[in-house]
């Protein structure tokens, strides 16, 4: 049986999906990147190889996320696509009529507007990471609350507390101020959820027409406090797909399926989990740009280079 592999290498998590020909998730993995994408990709593939039934043959691979090029050269991807396209594709698979996608991940948040199945507009957070998963993680750690309970606590709030959402620095100092005034933790957390939603709709969603069905995906969708805040702010239902946290990888797998068609895949096989990978870097002195070139080696062979402003180092 044919199946397709999708890999989403994000700042906070790496997701690996094995998708059947029918578009069903056979295996879906969510692993923390922990700053070591190479090792985690290898570890993820090792786990994926264990989970999948023996009669499955990987017929295509797609990678996405900020580490898509890295993953692409490591595994031999057939398609390397940006996360916006990948998320839009996955959302359309789950909900063909989808008109709006909210995606909030570790470092960035995006809004995608679709009409009649095609992306007509999108936006990503620009200069600030306020309202993304990393900030919620950080605040959960500061309050010593497991991030998984964050949403439940927010729902227990009975008194509104206003937190500034424009910038994480403002948000944090506001939270501390409110906490020292004696407000309850659930109220503060709820205030934070509302602030993040306000900032998201105002900054990322600026001027966009948010029409239902609305899909909310990315790691932050696990937080029911944020979902509730979205619904309150919009007055419309927000749907969370079953595989909300691995949608990018699902989209990448689907794109690989379309890319490969009946052709052959470039996938190197699960054997790469055992290969040694290392990275090195050097400064190019070809011009005044002094680009920092990063190289990745598979065994002793260079398989990819990044960081060059010109095409001098593109040929491997």
């Amino acid at each position: 049986m044919k199946a397709y592999l999708g890999i989403d290498v994000g700042s906070v998590s790496i997701n690996i999906v094995v998708l059947s020909e029918a578009g069903e998730v056979i295996t879906g993995l969510y692993l923390r990147t922990m700053g070591r994408p190479v090792q985690v990709i290898q570890e993820g593939l090792r786990q994926a190889a264990e989970y999948i039934p023996p009669d499955i043959e990987i017929a295509g691979v797609g990678s996405t996320g900020s580490g898509r090029y890295l993953a692409g050269v490591m595994v031999g991807a057939d398609v390397v696509k940006n996360e916006i396209t990948a998320h839009a594709v996955a959302a359309s698979m789950i909900e063909p009529d989808v008109q709006t996608v909210f995606e909030i991940g570790g470092q960035d948040s995006k809004i995608i507007i679709l009409r009649n199945g095609i992306v007509t507009d999108f936006a990503m957070n620009t200069v600030c990471a306020a309202g993304t998963g990393s900030f919620l993680d950080q605040q959960a750690a500061r309050l010593d609350i497991p991030i998984t309970q964050f949403g439940d606590l927010a729902l227990q709030s009975c008194q509104p507390v206003r937190i500034a959402g424009r910038c994480t620095v403002f948000a944090e100092s506001d939270m501390i101020h409110k906490q020292q005034m004696g407000h309850q933790i659930p109220d503060i957390i709820n205030g934070l959820c509302e602030a993040l939603v306000r900032n998201y709709l105002n900054n990322v969603g600026k001027g966009k027409e948010v029409l239902p069905p609305i899909l909310f995906q990315g790691g932050v969708a696990a937080n029911i406090g944020i979902k509730a805040a979205f619904e309150k702010a919009l007055g419309k239902p927000v749907l969370i797909p079953k595989h909300y946290d691995i949608m990018g990888a699902i989209g990448a797998a689907q794109l690989a399926r379309e890319e490969v068609g009946n052709g052959a895949t470039k996938f190197k096989g699960f054997k790469i989990t055992g290969l040694p990978y290392r990275t090195g870097s050097f400064e190019c002195d070809g011009c005044s740009n002094v680009c920092e070139i990063v190289e990745i080696y598979e065994e002793d062979k260079v398989i990819g280079r990044w960081g060059s402003r010109c095409s001098k180092w593109d040929i491997i």
Binding site: S66, K81, N82, E83, I84, T85, D108, I118, V119, T120, D121, F122, M124
Partner: peptide, 17 residues
């Protein structure tokens, strides 16, 4: 990286449209 992602996605969007 951030700029490339956005430019690629924007190009996809325009091409599909």
């Amino acid at each position: 990286a951030g700029m490339s992602t956005r430019l690629e996605a924007f190009t996809d969007l325009m091409r599909r449209k």
